[in-house]
Computed example of a mutant assay.
Amino acid sequence: MAIPARFWDGQVATAHHAGLDYEAVGSAGTLVIRQPHSRTEIGRWPADSLFMVPTRRHELRLGSTGQPDGARVVIAGRDNIARVLATLPQLHQKHRAEAGRQMRLAVTATLALAAVISAYVYGVPVLASRLVHLVPPAWEASLGDTVAQQMETSLGGLDICDPDPQSLANRALRRFGDAAIAGTGTPFDLDIQVVRSEVPNAFALPGGKVYFFSNLLHLARTPDEFAGVLAHEIGHVVNRHGMEQLISTAGTGALIGFILGDMTGISLAAGLGTMVIDTRFSRLSELQADAFAAEVAQRMDFHPAGLADLVGRAGADDDFARALALLSTHPLTDDRKAALELMAAERPTGLEPPFTDAEWRAIKGMCDLPAAGKRKGG
């Protein structure tokens, strides 16, 4: 007695009522699909070509290799399904083999993904720190100029607070920068600019450009706080973190990290996946820049923990920030301040302050000058 079924031939969307017969010829067999009343044959599928297709409960759906993609035979009812499976036991064997193959593929893909993530988390940052020394400084400086131009375009121009390079404030910034990089062997000349912006931020570009936003300057209460942040950004330049980050993130397929030193957590960010992969490297860069600021404080009379005080005031850590500490590209303020306090514990006495009182007043007042229109920095 034929087993009732529905049959799609893969050519049209209409289903046909059908009856299924099984013809055995030696060790081979064939599923014969017939019209239920006339018994006219409308399909013949070799048994060894059959496979099970996922479907709903209490239904068996079969396909056949060599048939159109949409060709299907659907059997409903427990008794009918049991008769088919009893006649074609190889279906279960194929199904188990396919499930095992899919499981092996899933395990292999998971291990491959874990290997890739491990390579990026542990290998790419190490590789980037090595490769950065092979990049010609002139090329890196040119890259920094390009990024600055792109940034200026995206912001509609940069409003430099004090464009006079011979003003007391700019001469003080230049002197501080020269003293900070003295003896480091850096191939770059610093270009420090204070820019009008409502965003409390400071950052360094590859090649020596450092930008300090006016809002962050206004939040600075002491020369120590300002000097700490500025030395931190100069540390990014000296350690060539911009170029390292570019090399590292290029390995993940995203050219992020041109701009380092996003002191308040506001960044030119990319997706969460890339951020997680690159977190370890970014946090290491921030700690290295903090250490550089502490080293500069060993040569000038300022307390490097002022850096953490200003960062904390500009973007205080909250419970949400602490919960995402592992995803943060910057160490939490309390952690950084504690580390900076330790690094400053043996700071010598009798050092020259980073700025005179007159210089500090001039720096604090740089952006109190009337705005003269947006100018290109550099």
Results as ranks from 00 to 15, higher is better:
residue 14 T to G: 06
residue 346 E to T: 14
residue 56 R to E: 13
residue 248 S to Q: 09
residue 328 S to L: 10
residue 228 G to I: 13
residue 6 R to E: 14
residue 67 Q to P: 04
residue 172 A to H: 01
residue 87 T to D: 12
residue 94 K to S: 12
residue 251 G to R: 10
residue 281 F to N: 14
residue 161 C to N: 02
residue 24 A to V: 15
residue 77 G to A: 05
residue 175 R to S: 15
residue 32 V to S: 10
residue 24 A to E: 14
residue 271 G to R: 09
residue 203 F to I: 07
residue 369 L to C: 05
residue 83 R to P: 00
residue 10 G to S: 03
residue 25 V to I: 12
residue 357 D to M: 12
residue 206 P to A: 14
residue 297 A to R: 03
residue 225 E to T: 00
residue 244 E to S: 13
residue 112 A to Y: 00
residue 185 G to E: 06
residue 60 L to G: 05
residue 208 G to I: 01
residue 316 A to Q: 03
residue 234 I to S: 06
residue 51 F to E: 13
residue 113 L to R: 11
residue 171 R to L: 15
residue 330 H to Q: 14
residue 57 R to I: 08
residue 172 A to C: 05
residue 196 R to P: 09
residue 142 S to K: 10
residue 128 A to N: 04
residue 130 R to K: 13
residue 128 A to M: 05
residue 86 A to N: 13
residue 279 T to Y: 00
residue 241 H to M: 05
residue 159 D to G: 09
residue 49 S to Y: 05
residue 254 A to C: 11
residue 127 L to C: 04
residue 338 A to H: 07
residue 150 Q to H: 09
residue 247 I to V: 09
residue 84 V to G: 09
residue 159 D to F: 05
residue 83 R to M: 11
residue 336 R to V: 02
residue 202 A to Y: 03
residue 137 P to G: 05
residue 257 G to T: 01
residue 13 A to M: 09
residue 25 V to S: 13
residue 356 T to A: 02
residue 280 R to Y: 06
residue 150 Q to T: 07
residue 113 L to Q: 12
residue 322 R to G: 10
residue 129 S to T: 15
residue 243 M to R: 11
residue 164 D to F: 06
residue 174 R to S: 13
residue 236 H to K: 08
residue 224 D to N: 11
residue 305 A to K: 05
residue 213 F to V: 09
residue 308 A to E: 04
residue 92 H to V: 11
residue 32 V to M: 10
residue 208 G to F: 01
residue 216 L to Q: 01
residue 245 Q to L: 12
residue 271 G to E: 09
residue 17 H to F: 12
residue 364 K to C: 14
residue 9 D to N: 15
residue 321 A to V: 06
residue 61 R to Q: 08
residue 335 D to N: 12
residue 165 P to S: 07
residue 153 T to Y: 10
residue 178 D to H: 14
residue 52 M to K: 13
residue 71 A to H: 02
residue 295 E to N: 08
residue 135 V to G: 00
residue 123 G to I: 04
residue 121 V to A: 11
residue 335 D to I: 08
residue 371 A to E: 15
residue 146 T to S: 13
residue 260 L to I: 11
residue 139 W to F: 12
residue 276 V to C: 10
residue 119 A to W: 12
residue 87 T to A: 15
residue 268 L to G: 15
residue 375 R to I: 06
residue 240 R to F: 08
residue 84 V to W: 04
residue 8 W to N: 12
residue 232 H to R: 14
residue 67 Q to I: 05
residue 208 G to W: 00
residue 180 A to P: 06
residue 177 G to R: 07
residue 276 V to K: 12
residue 338 A to Q: 11
residue 274 T to Q: 06
residue 294 A to Y: 00
residue 53 V to S: 08
residue 88 L to H: 10
residue 155 L to E: 14
residue 86 A to I: 01
residue 183 G to L: 07
residue 63 G to R: 04
residue 86 A to E: 08
residue 107 V to S: 03
residue 30 T to W: 09
residue 197 S to W: 01
